[in-house]
């Protein structure tokens, strides 16, 4: 690890002022991804601003029924929160499918959103990587790309977004609250992460000097009928090959509303609005789920070692929808 100075911020304002005066500073919350990246000399901040003392640790139900999750709420506390388990089971399940209990006890909500890809070439500083060193090339496109993305890729980068939690948040149309010296703003979750395009080093729309303070989950009554299914090489403690967060509202066997988002296949948490639309006013049958999965995956582009992913992702979507929508026909 390269040398850095350490300061502890006591208020949001202190944190924002500190990061505003040092463009090479970074906030540290749980640190589970940042410290790892610093050990690998991928992140080399000159200063760490410890924000764990900030008052951003509450999970509140707002008067309009939305849930506001403080940026520093630990992944384990969010996963086991009774309101979340009851009203948004897909979010609880996604969180519990990620990392290990120890890491979930450390990792924060905002840190989870800002975590970086686990592409092995991004981590290997001896190899070219456009995300780590813009212009150096992508080692994954013609390398061992079994874990890599099939949606949202570019000729510069095919790294997957690693988060499980973010897949549920994409499905739930979460809203990210941000504070900076210029005041407060919100960003829709789906607009927060960026596909790599020509600038894979730019992963989200957060501006320098901005602090994520909370994530708001809009009330969605039918999300109580939701789930998250993750397929991986090991049963536990492994990143997704494919995953799906789904919610269904069904009346008399007819689908009224649907939410579908995918993990392990996209360069960002992947929402499938067209597939959701295709299910509305249809019967909750395996054939309709299968047709929706085809729509969700119609733009896939596979690489040498991940050609299995479209079929696996399709089965993951169908299986998730059947889990909450019944195994009919």
């Amino acid at each position: 690890m390269y040398p850095f100075t350490y300061i502890k911020a006591k208020t949001n304002k202190e944190a924002i002022t500190a990061i505003g005066s040092n463009s090479n500073a970074k906030f540290i919350g749980g640190g589970t991804n940042l410290i790892d990246l610093m050990k690998m000399n991928i992140e080399m901040p000159q200063q760490l601003i410890d924000i764990t003392s900030l008052d951003l640790k509450k999970i509140e139900t707002l008067p309009n029924g939305n849930i506001k999750i403080g940026a520093l709420v630990r992944n384990s506390d969010l996963a086991y929160d009774e309101t979340i388990m009851q009203k948004f089971p897909m979010l609880s399940k996604a969180l519990l499918a990620g990392a290990s209990p120890q890491l979930r006890n450390m990792a924060t909500t905002a840190g989870n959103i800002l975590q970086r890809t686990r592409c092995s070439y991004f981590y290997d500083t001896a190899m070219p990587c456009n995300k780590r060193e813009p212009g150096s090339g992508c080692s994954a496109i013609k390398g061992y790309n079994r874990m890599h993305a099939i949606l949202g890729t570019s000729d510069k980068c095919i790294a997957t977004h690693p988060s499980d939690m973010c897949v549920a948040m994409a499905a739930l149309d979460a809203i990210i609250h941000i504070e900076s010296a210029n005041g407060e703003r919100t960003i829709n979750f789906l607009d927060f992460h960026l596909v790599p395009g020509d600038t894979p080093e730019k992963e989200n729309v957060l501006q320098p000097g901005e602090l994520i303070t909370a994530v708001e989950i809009p009330a969605l009554p039918f999300a109580s009928n939701s789930t998250y299914i993750k397929v991986r090489d090991r049963h536990s403690y492994e990143f997704a090959l494919t995953s799906a967060a789904v919610a269904l509202e069904i009346n008399d066997g007819i689908i009224q509303n649907a939410r579908i988002a995918l993990g392990g296949v996209g360069t960002k948490p992947w929402r499938c609005k067209e597939a959701e639309q295709s299910l509305i006013n249809k019967k909750a049958t395996a054939d309709n789920f299968s047709a929706a999965a085809d729509i969700a995956l119609k733009d896939v582009k596979t690489f040498q070692y991940n050609a299995f992913k479209p079929k696996l992702a399709k089965q993951t979507i169908i299986s998730a929808l059947q889990t909450i929508g019944g195994n009919n026909g």
Binding site: Y6, K8, I28, G31, T32, I35, D36, L48, D50, T52, S100, P101, Q102, L103, N105, M106
Partner: peptide
């Protein structure tokens, strides 16, 4: 793995500076 304020964490990814 150690317990910090009763919660199990990975001490290799936790800065001692943050343990004040």
């Amino acid at each position: 793995t150690v317990l910090v304020d009763g919660r199990r964490i990975n001490s290799c990814l936790h800065l001692a500076a943050m343990c004040d």
